[in-house]
């Protein structure tokens, strides 16, 4: 028998645990944006060495599952004598992993702009900095917004993986809950509902931003 009271009761602690899920996802994408922008700059730079380094970064991080990256990163920290809280390790790993995807999102958006956009700016004598700042980046940002929101939603779901290093986010909290109540279906269904609500909100935010930046 499906127990509706158990389902409702487990929503509360899981909702509380969602703050870790959100913290990891939002901090992760923020870090990913910073690193991803640098990686993208490296991949578009005139220096062959930088382009190569950027390509290696992207293919390595896209080619290894996040869960494995997380475990390798977490268990390698003591080797360097670092005592980093699990939360920080999780955010850094998620951010680094996201940077690979974000740099590709940027690169795709920048390459999608017609070359004439920059040419027109160069032809009237704008500096390269102004061409980037005023012409290319604002358009690339608008173009990449749907993909960035998509990436954020993926991160919210991928953050369930950090339960392996002991962070009590939604998934880990529901496992604990299921073990104590012996009602796994109700508990996991509650977890599913919370993930869904978070991601529906993010999708709505994305639609709002797209609408606002549309030309």
């Amino acid at each position: 028998m499906f127990s509706i009271p158990t389902f409702l009761e487990s929503l509360v602690p899981l909702f509380w645990a969602a703050r870790y899920t959100l913290l990891i996802s939002v901090a992760g994408i923020a870090l990913g944006l910073v690193i991803g922008t640098l990686v993208c700059a490296a991949r578009l730079s005139p220096s062959r060495a930088l382009r190569r380094a950027g390509a290696v970064w992207v293919s390595f991080l896209r080619g290894v599952p996040l869960l494995v990256q997380l475990l390798v990163f977490y268990y390698s920290l003591p080797l360097f004598g670092l005592d980093v809280p699990a939360m920080v390790a999780a955010i850094v790993t998620v951010g680094i992993c996201a940077s690979a995807y974000i740099s590709e999102i940027w690169r795709g958006a920048i390459n999608a702009l017609p070359r004439g956009q920059a040419e027109a700016a160069v032809a009237i004598g704008m500096t390269p900095q102004d061409v980037w700042r005023r012409i290319i980046l604002p358009q690339a940002f608008t173009l990449s917004l749907p993909a960035l929101i998509n990436e954020l939603i993926l991160l919210v779901k991928a953050s369930s993986l950090v339960s392996v290093v002991g962070i009590l986010e939604i998934t880990r909290a529901s496992q604990a809950q299921a073990a104590t109540t012996f009602r796994p279906l109700e508990v996991y269904l509650a977890a599913a509902c919370i993930y869904l609500v978070i991601n529906l909100c993010l999708a709505a935010l994305g639609r709002y931003l797209e609408h606002r930046t549309a030309v």
Partner: peptide, 20 residues
């Protein structure tokens, strides 16, 4: 080069206006 381009106007086949 930018200084010289400043006094040369150019019009392109595809207009190349900035859509934003």
């Amino acid at each position: 080069l930018r200084e010289m381009r400043r006094s040369i106007g150019m019009v392109f086949q595809q207009f190349n206006l900035w859509p934003h």
